[in-house]
Design a protein around this nucleic acid. Structure first.
Lengths: 126, 126
DNA sequence: TTAGGTGTATTAGCATACGCAGTACACCAG
DNA sequence: CTGGTGTACTGCGTATGCTAATACACCTAA
């Protein structure tokens, strides 16, 4: 059994959806630092994807600082180090700006936007 | 002079960046309902893009309900009708979920996330 | 009516990205 | 040695995006 949920929605690259699934499991707490992570071949067998696609996702997750890889052994979820404000900004700023723009364009108020944001935040720990 | 700012950042499709530029101008108030919108040929000449690319962006903008097109005449910014909660949710839910997941994964608190959101909101009217 | 503007559609070429397949190598554990 | 691990490479087919060059139907103003 895989330590996260994965389902392939057409229209998006499989590797990206795999990366997103892991991030989601991490945010939910289903996946914690120190946990072992499935190998390339296990992933490709369980999810029915090509080994190269699994390898690609795994590579992106390592580069993002989420996984820790020991050659010949396997991968584990990395213990998060404290991130600087600049680092979080690099990840969050762009999607945050587009979200605000869309919301404002649609006529939403700041309050309703914040309310919806809190809803999603709490909904993640259900 | 175009009624919005456009700059081509490599890595993203040109047509999408054009669509985004228009949405941004709309959220900022630089572009208002009733305003005339440049033609396909004007856009392609000013921004130095292919007419087909301009046409593609214009088509997406009409389908999104942002532009109103009169064949043989031109395009105008459409007057926004009241949107249902389901309609705004269809646009905002997915990017909002990914934003919350990223933020939570990076160890942010709900308060800091909201603070940053308010900052972007107010920064849009500067 | 004519000339020039508008949106729209078609076909083609080219580059890139994605996913799939197969193969190979270096490493480590049992 | 055997079977697991990550990693790398080539090739193939497909889809997407941008560009290019036309062509058509429509409207407006001269």
């Amino acid at each position: 059994m895989l330590p996260f949920e994965f389902q392939h929605l057409p229209g998006k690259p499989v590797s990206e959806q795999l990366v997103f699934s892991v991030k989601k499991a991490l945010a939910k707490g289903q996946l914690k630092p120190g946990d072992p992570f499935p190998s390339v071949r296990t992933l490709s067998r369980e999810i029915r994807i090509n080994p190269n696609t699994a390898q690609k996702a795994l590579s992106q997750l390592t580069q993002a600082g989420i996984l820790e890889i020991t050659p010949g052994i396997g991968a584990r979820v990395r213990h998060q180090t404290k991130l600087s404000a600049a680092e979080t900004a690099a990840v969050l700023d762009e999607p945050m700006e587009t979200l605000v723009i869309e919301a404002k364009r649609l006529g939403l108020t700041l309050d309703t936007l914040e309310a919806r944001l809190r809803h999603f935040w709490k909904d993640l720990n259900r």
